[in-house]
Each structure stands twice: as C-alpha cells, then as structure tokens.
Design a protein around this nucleic acid. Structure first.
Lengths: 147, 147
DNA sequence: TATTGTTATACTCTATAACTATA
DNA sequence: TATAGTTATAGAGTATAACAATA
C-alpha cells in the first residue's frame, strides 16, 4: 500500500486530503451511528453550542454544508429534541438555532466518543504539531475562500 | 463566515478536512472537465506514470478508491486511449496498467492546469510550510492505516 | 430586488455483495 | 480456499433550481 509513489503529485495536498477525508468520514459514521444521527451532527451541535442564535445560513457556510443539506440535518436534530428553531423577532426570515438541554448532553457524549476515536492522531502528533497542522490548514482554507 | 467558532472541535481536524475536501474537489472537477474525464483521473494517471505495471488493487489502495470505483475510472481512461490493461503473464488474474503516449501527454497537460489552480496555496505557504503540511498529513494517514 | 429557509431533484462518490477467472 | 478484477446495486453527500415568506 505504501510502496507506491505519488509521482507528479508528490507535493500536492489533493490526493492526501481525499484519503484523509475518507478515513475520517468512516470514523465519523462510527461516532454518529450509536446516536442514530447523520454525519455532521457533532460538528453542527458544537457550532450551535458555541454560537447560539446563529442563522442556518451562517452555520451552513461555516460547516461547509449546503443550505438544503443543513435543513435536513436540523430537521433530524430537531426531531430528536436536540435543537430548537426560534424565529428571529427582528428579522422574521431567520431561524435562531439553540441547543436544548438534551442537545447539550448529546454533544458532550459524542465528544467523548470522537475523542477516543481520534486518540491515535493525538498520540502520533505532539500538541504543538497538531496546532501546526490545524494552523496550516486554516491558512489554506482562508486563501481558498473557505475561512 | 469566519466569525463563528468551532467550539468543542477547535482542536479537531475533521471539520476542516471536510471544508478542504469540498473546495479541492470543486477545483478537481474544474481541472478534469475540459478533458472530459472524471474526478481522480489526474491522481490515477500520475500514479500509473510513476509506478507502471501496478495492479488495480495496488492503485486503488494508494489512491483511496474502492475496487469498483477504480474499474470505472480505468474503463474511461482506457476508452479514451490514455491507459492500457496488460494481463500479467506470471499471474493472469492481475492487470498491469501502463500509460500510452497519449496518456503521458494528457497527464502533463492536466498537471499544468492543476498547478495553476493550486497556485493560491503555494503563494500563501512557503515551500517549507507546504512540506511541513504534507509531512504532518502523511504521518496522520500512516497512523490511521492509510499510509 | 435581494435574502432566508424550504422543497424537489439529480448527480457524484463511496460501499457492499456476488460473480468469474485464476491461483 | 483465497485473491484480482468485474458487475450490479444501494446509499450517503453534495449541488442546483425553483418557490414562499420576509426584508
């Protein structure tokens, strides 16, 4: 598996990001499945928790999910009583999303599971290296217009 | 867009990899479209070029593509005369993949296009930082069993 | 006229199972 | 019995267009 060479793409991040995403996605499914929630739920719960009252558009942009994709995610989270859609009184087009108490609990539980699953990464990389990796990715995202 | 906070996932690579992958995938489509080729063609051409005679299984593992996914990719590349499937004489189950002359030309052209598209990344990151980023990703991939 | 959220729809990517031919 | 490649199929993820309500 590791005996092949990337060739012309030896200095490209593209192919590696695909491998990384595939692997992390599989792990993400493993985290979400016991909670009977779709992939991306943890990310969304965490975002709402940290930024209560955000609109769906703001959350979709930050999470890298399309509008319709976010609607179905929120539908499911709301159905399970983890999230509430409060109509904004100042701009009645917007939904201000907030976590319910149950949503907070679920977020904490999911975070524990994902921490276990990501443990190998934190064992391989020092805290400083992990911050370096995230910092570099964030700079790339920013220049690509996703920051 | 950038005014929201990741919350509990501030030190997680998962959500960022999704954003990165979405963006790079859109760019990959932009590169492949003029050549009327599916996403992943450049990666595969580059791998075959550097490792001629590889089996489809070896290539699929390295590229992070499933067996059936690789079959349809090779089908298309072969249909356009960019790749040849040579049956191995020592193990007649295996296909030894090689680039045709036209395949080599197409690879070179696609590489020029992808270099232009990835230019913003190379302008933002120094050569050393880019190597750092790739090195860190490779270590993560290895510990996840994808190296 | 523009924007938020929604619905409907299609397409791509990825995953899985079953088949064949070889070993 | 196991492996490489293939076929068929299903599912998740993502994208786009059109609509309603509001600004």
């Amino acid at each position: 598996m590791g005996d092949l060479d990337w060739g012309l793409l030896s200095n490209s991040v593209g192919p590696r990001v695909r491998l990384l995403r595939n692997n992390l996605n599989a792990r993400s499914i493993a985290v979400s499945e016991p909670f009977d929630l779709p992939t991306g739920s943890l990310t969304l719960l965490s975002l709402i928790d940290q930024n209560p009252g955000s609109s769906q558009k703001e959350l979709a942009d930050k999470a890298g999910i399309t509008g319709p994709g976010l609607v179905s995610l929120v539908d499911e989270l709301e159905r399970q009583g983890l999230v509430r859609r409060d109509r904004s009184t100042t701009d009645r087009r917007r939904n201000m999303l907030v976590l319910t108490d149950k949503g907070e609990e679920t977020l904490a539980e999911m975070f524990k599971v994902v921490s276990q699953i990501e443990a190998p990464i934190r064992e391989e990389l020092s805290q400083k290296e992990l911050e370096q990796l995230i910092g570099l990715i964030d700079r790339v995202l920013k220049v690509l217009g996703e920051g």
